[in-house]
């Protein structure tokens, strides 16, 4: 009998399976990885809340420029600390089985740094800055880039991207679903 499986009941697994894009074994595996982040804490209480820096020690999040954003968005307390359910939620959205529209929704939130439900210029700039992190664009280049992005995607000319516009433009990018994926 696996260690990881003892912390759940069959019904709970069933429940998680129904609510996420994972199968039971993937859920158990996810829990194992979550547990390995803080063995004692999670071993004690399987739904323990881990602080953000603990979560960021996960290689998938550590190497990711948006790792912090992901924690913040999926954290149920909004401070970046995640319980196992939050973690499972995150992994489920990034799993292979999750549909593109769900991914797009969360991608939008990740890129929406100021949380105003629009990707404004500052959001775009921040996204680009994070993408190229050690390198920097000059302010003119950055401005030109943001202008180009808005020109392509901003259909209603309000200088920012609403979710619908974002999704519209994401639908043109076949690589999105491929790249917006974490293999557990």
């Amino acid at each position: 009998m696996g260690q990881g499986s003892s912390q759940f009941t069959e019904a709970e697994l069933e429940e998680y399976q129904e609510l996420t894009y994972f199968t039971k074994k993937e859920i158990l595996y996810a829990h194992k990885r979550f547990k390995n982040l803080a063995l004692e804490k999670v071993g004690h209480n399987r739904n323990a809340k881990l602080p953000m820096d603990k979560l960021l020690s996960l290689p998938e999040l550590r190497a990711n420029p948006f790792g912090e954003r992901m924690c913040l968005i999926f954290s149920s307390t909004k401070d970046g600390d995640c319980t196992f359910e939050d973690f499972l939620d995150m992994m489920s959205v990034f799993s292979e089985a999750a549909p593109k529209s769900v991914k797009a929704e969360y991608a939008f939130r990740i890129f929406d740094f100021d949380g105003d439900d629009y990707l404004g210029r500052s959001d775009l700039e921040e996204t680009i800055t994070k993408l190229v992190s050690p390198q920097r664009f000059s302010s003119e280049d950055m401005k030109a880039l943001v202008n180009r992005v808005l020109e392509e995607a901003d259909l209603d000319d309000d200088g920012m991207l609403a979710f619908a516009e974002f999704e519209h433009v994401i639908s043109k990018s076949p690589d999105f679903a491929n790249s917006f994926r974490i293999r557990l």
């Binding site: 998938e60 990711n64 420029p65 948006f66 990034f94 991608a107 890129f111 775009l124 996204t127 680009i128 993408l131 880039l145 180009r148 992005v149 392509e152 995607a153 974002f166 433009v169 994401i170 043109k172 990018s173 690589d175 999105f176 790249s179 917006f180 994926r181 974490i182 293999r183």
Partner: peptide, 14 residues
Amino acid sequence: ASFVRKVFSSWDFS
């Protein structure tokens, strides 16, 4: 949509 594509889906989350 080449710019948008580069910005929004070029990071490989894996």
